[in-house]
Structures are given as structure tokens and as C-alpha cells.
Design a protein around this nucleic acid. Structure first.
Lengths: 207, 207
DNA sequence: AAGCTTTGTGAACACTGTTCATTTTAATTT
DNA sequence: AAATTAAAATGAACAGTGTTCACAAAGCTT
């Protein structure tokens, strides 16, 4: 009686195809340009079929977000193998910024746009798995640095938050074009961010 | 011959009324809920009259943003009178975060939303005056701290950017509800941010 | 009072997210 | 194999969006 299984599988496949094409359309057109009808065109189905798989657009964006988290986590996995916790911390920061540069729209979806979060609070099913995992690995690196006295003593979560807030702040200001406030050419913006990161890390290491 | 002047004045008054009502509607309904027709209703004019004063919605948002910058700058002016540069720096950070908490929508408009920036690059008229001013005052406090050796030596702009990125990162993550990743109750989120700020400042002061 | 410029309007266009009655398709039962 | 039932997919529609344009109202100049 593999028929039900096959139908279920086909349904999941279609769902994944929706998420995949939605992701492509999203990175291509940005958030404003992403429409349900555009996705429907790409999967060659009627727009209404999307609502058979997702309550609304927010829930679809949540699925796209989850897929994007997978991409970020994939880049992190290579960093996780670095033994030295301090070097690992630095590598995390660079990888994080690298992801933001390479995938500006997806970065916004992960850490800025409010739409997917509305869906996550509606259903209190806390998907967000990859997000917590990513933060945990950051905390672990911080923990190891603390034990080796490479960081000023303090609460692990707070320190991890401090580092995260810093790199996110840089990425966010850059992507939203607010670094224009520094009155520097745009090509140098990335260099500024690296220098800021170096300054922070040098402050931390003086402990 | 005060007629032309009167007409010009009336035009400016209407323009300011548009910006004012747009601001009110914006903080009330948020970005998604803000529509040209809703603003038109509030000013009791036809929607098309708005396009006599602004090229498009982005340009209107830019004007709202400028007004919001005024509000932020107003809060900063009281901080600017603090003599001790270190205390001034800390006060800036708290005032910045306070503004973000009190005016979440306006904060997004100032530092996150891309729409107004599109207008600012289209016309290369670099309004953005208040933004530069705010950053300059931050730089000045940093400069004074450097001379008193209250901060590790380094480029002034880079240090100012580092501080700004940190508080903006905290505010941004909080407002976009991404601090859920810390698995802490939402009421404690603000406390976490203050602790993170304290950690950063203690690191900086050890120089 | 006639003409002209500015100011304001209503209707329309091409979109958007979303819903619902209807039809097509597939699987099951008779 | 035919009829029945359940699932999947659709087209049309609704209310809303930003924006444009031909047209009307108002005010000023001559």
C-alpha cells in the first residue's frame, strides 16, 4: 500500500520545489519584488496551490528562511573544525560577514525582516532549529576562550551576544547603506568593517 | 508683492502637514500599513496631491526619515552637554537604545529600511544632514577619550563605527525579534542588552 | 471680464495577497 | 468496467496597493 506514501512524498516534493523557487525568486527580485504569482509561474502551477502548502506568505517566507539558515550553517561547519577557539571565533566573524556580503537578501531574511517572525509566533512551533544551533556553537567557542583566559571574564551568553551584535551591526549598517554616513567611498566600506572587527578583537584579547 | 511668498508658504505648510501626518500614520500602522491613500485621508486631500510634493513614496519616506532624525538629534543634544567624554559616550549609547525602544518603527526607518535610501541615491542631493551631525558628535567624544587615553589607540572613525555597530546591532536584533535565539524571556532582553553594553565598555576601558 | 497658471480631482492601470466555488484528476468501491 | 468518492488544482473575484493622466476648479494677471 505504498500509494499514500507516494502521494505524501509527491506533496513534500512540490512543497520543496515551492521553497526552492521562492528562494531563487527572492534572491533575484528581493523582498519587494517577490510575489506569490511570480512563484506560481516558476513552479508552473496556479497561485492558489501555494496556499495548500502554506497558510500565507509569511509562513512561506519562514520556510525560505529555514533553508537560508541551512546555507549559513553549512559555511559555519567548516569553521567549527578549527581547534584554537580564538582563531575559531575570528573565523566565525569573517564567515558571518562573508555570508552577508554574498547573500544580502537572504541575510535580511535571516536577521532583519519581521515577516517570517510573525509566522513563528503565530504557530508556537519553534522551528528556528538552525538558529539556536548556530548560536550554541558560538557560545561554545566563547566558553573555551574564557577557560583559556583569552577573553575578559563574564557571562558566556552576554559575551556571545556582544560579538554577534557587533558583526550583525556592521553587516546591517552596510547592507542598508547607512555607512554612507561615514562619507567614505562604498568600496572602502568593507575595509572599514574589517578594521572595526580587528579593533574589537584586539580590545578583547588584552584581558 | 507678498502673494508669491504666501503661496510658497502655503505650499510648504501643506508639505509639512503631509510629512507630519505620514509620520503619525507610520508610527501607528507601521511600514506595511502605511498607504498613500491613508495619508490622503488624514490630510483631507486627494491622493494625487501628494505627488505634487514628492516624486514617489520613497521620497516621502525620506522626508519622514529626516523628521525622525530630528527627534533623535533632539535627545542627543542633552547628552552633548556632558563634560566627561567617557560618561558622554555611555550616555549616547543609552540614549540611542532608548530611542530605539520608544520608537521602534521610526528606528527602522532611520537605520534599517532601504526605501528612503533609494530616494537619496536617485537625487544625489545628500540631505542626511542630521545623520552626519550625529555621527560627528560621536566621533568628537571618541576623539576626546583617545586623548585622555580612555580608549585603546586607533582610528577615530573606526572606533566610532565600532561603538555604533554594537548598539545598532543590539537594537536591530531586539526589534526584529531575533533575540529569541537566546531562549530567554522577552522581558529580560533589554537587560541582556545593557549587560552586553557594559561588557563592551569595560573591555574598552582596560586600555 | 478674458486668459493663463497653479492646484486639485476622479477614474483608470497594472499590480498585490488571499478566498471560494468549480472543475479536473486520481483512487476506491461497486 | 462503471460509478462513487476524495484530493488536487484552477479561474474568477475581492479589496487593497502605488502611480499616472486627462480634466475641472480656483486664483492671479492683464
Amino acid at each position: 500500500m505504498g500509494i499514500l506514501e507516494r502521494k505524501e512524498r509527491e506533496k513534500q516534493e512540490l512543497r520543496e520545489r515551492i521553497v526552492k523557487e521562492a528562494t531563487l525568486a527572492f534572491v533575484e527580485l528581493g523582498y519587494e519584488g517577490l510575489s506569490v504569482r511570480a512563484i506560481a509561474d516558476r513552479i508552473e502551477y496556479s497561485p492558489t496551490v501555494i496556499y495548500l502548502h502554506f497558510r500565507d506568505k509569511d509562513e512561506l517566507l519562514l520556510a525560505v528562511q529555514e533553508a537560508a539558515f541551512g546555507q549559513l550553517f553549512f559555511r559555519f561547519q567548516q569553521v567549527m573544525q578549527i581547534q584554537d577557539p580564538w582563531l575559531r571565533l575570528e573565523a566565525f566573524a569573517h564567515e558571518y560577514l562573508g555570508f552577508a556580503f554574498d547573500n544580502p537578501e537572504l541575510y535580511d531574511l535571516l536577521f532583519t525582516l519581521k515577516n517570517p517572525m510573525r509566522a513563528v509566533t503565530q504557530q508556537d512551533d519553534p522551528t528556528w532549529k538552525h538558529g539556536h544551533d548556530a548560536f550554541s556553537t558560538l557560545c561554545q567557542a566563547v566558553e573555551e576562550c574564557l577557560q583559556l583566559e583569552l577573553l575578559p571574564p563574564g557571562n558566556t551568553d552576554i559575551i556571545a551576544l556582544t560579538l554577534w551584535a557587533h558583526v550583525h551591526g556592521l553587516a546591517s549598517l552596510f547592507l542598508s547603506q547607512r555607512l554612507q554616513m561615514l562619507e567614505q567611498p562604498d568600496e572602502q566600506a568593507q575595509s572599514l568593517m574589517v578594521q572595526s572587527l580587528q579593533y574589537l578583537m584586539s580590545m578583547a584579547k588584552q584581558a
